[in-house]
Measured scan of single mutants.
Amino acid sequence: EDAPSSDDLEQFAKQFKQRRIKLGFTQADVGLALGTLYGNVFSQTTICRFEALQLSFKNMCKLKPLLNKWLEETDSSS
């Protein structure tokens, strides 16, 4: 699987934040939901840093598919 470019990540982080707010979730909600869904709880700080593009590139790449999946799950259930 190709690693996303930093442009991709930036684009995704923006879209993710907009969708999250529109769906009415806090950063902490998302962190907990990831724990429920995938067994990895993320702190509010981590989600905040992801949205602000302040995580390392490697961590951004790791989180992106999880957050993407969460969006898909959340979209389909709302």
Rank of each mutant, 00 (worst) to 15 (best):
E1W: 14
D2T: 15
P4W: 13
P4T: 12
P4E: 11
S5N: 14
S5V: 13
S5M: 14
S6V: 15
S6F: 15
D7T: 10
D8K: 05
D8H: 07
L9P: 02
E10Q: 09
Q11V: 11
F12H: 06
F12G: 00
A13L: 00
K14D: 01
Q15G: 08
Q15V: 10
F16Q: 03
K17Q: 13
K17T: 12
Q18F: 06
R20Q: 02
R20V: 03
I21W: 03
F25R: 06
F25D: 01
F25A: 07
F25H: 00
T26P: 00
T26D: 01
T26V: 02
T26N: 04
T26I: 00
Q27T: 11
Q27E: 12
A28Q: 08
A28G: 10
A28I: 03
A28W: 05
D29T: 04
D29M: 02
V30W: 05
G31L: 04
L32I: 14
L32Q: 14
L34E: 03
L34W: 00
L34A: 05
G35Q: 09
G35M: 05
T36A: 09
L37T: 10
L37H: 14
L37R: 12
L37K: 14
L37W: 07
Y38T: 10
G39D: 08
G39K: 14
G39A: 05
G39R: 08
G39C: 04
N40Y: 07
N40C: 10
V41M: 12
V41K: 14
F42S: 05
F42L: 11
F42N: 03
F42C: 11
Q44Y: 07
Q44S: 12
T45A: 11
T45E: 15
T46M: 13
T46C: 02
I47N: 01
I47K: 01
I47V: 07
R49G: 03
F50A: 01
E51I: 01
A52S: 13
A52K: 14
L53N: 15
L53H: 10
L53F: 07
L53Y: 10
Q54K: 10
Q54I: 06
L55R: 04
S56T: 07
S56Q: 03
S56F: 02
S56D: 12
S56G: 08
F57H: 12
F57K: 12
F57P: 12
F57N: 11
K58H: 10
N59T: 09
N59R: 12
N59S: 10
C61H: 06
C61V: 13
C61M: 11
K62W: 04
K62T: 11
K62L: 09
L63E: 04
L63W: 03
L63Q: 01
K64E: 03
K64I: 01
P65H: 08
P65Q: 04
L66Y: 13
L66H: 05
L66R: 04
L66Q: 05
L66M: 14
L67F: 02
L67H: 11
N68T: 14
N68A: 12
N68G: 11
K69C: 05
L71H: 05
E72Q: 09
E73M: 12
E73D: 15
E73I: 06
E73V: 09
T74H: 15
D75G: 10
D75Y: 14
S77C: 09
S78C: 13
S78T: 13
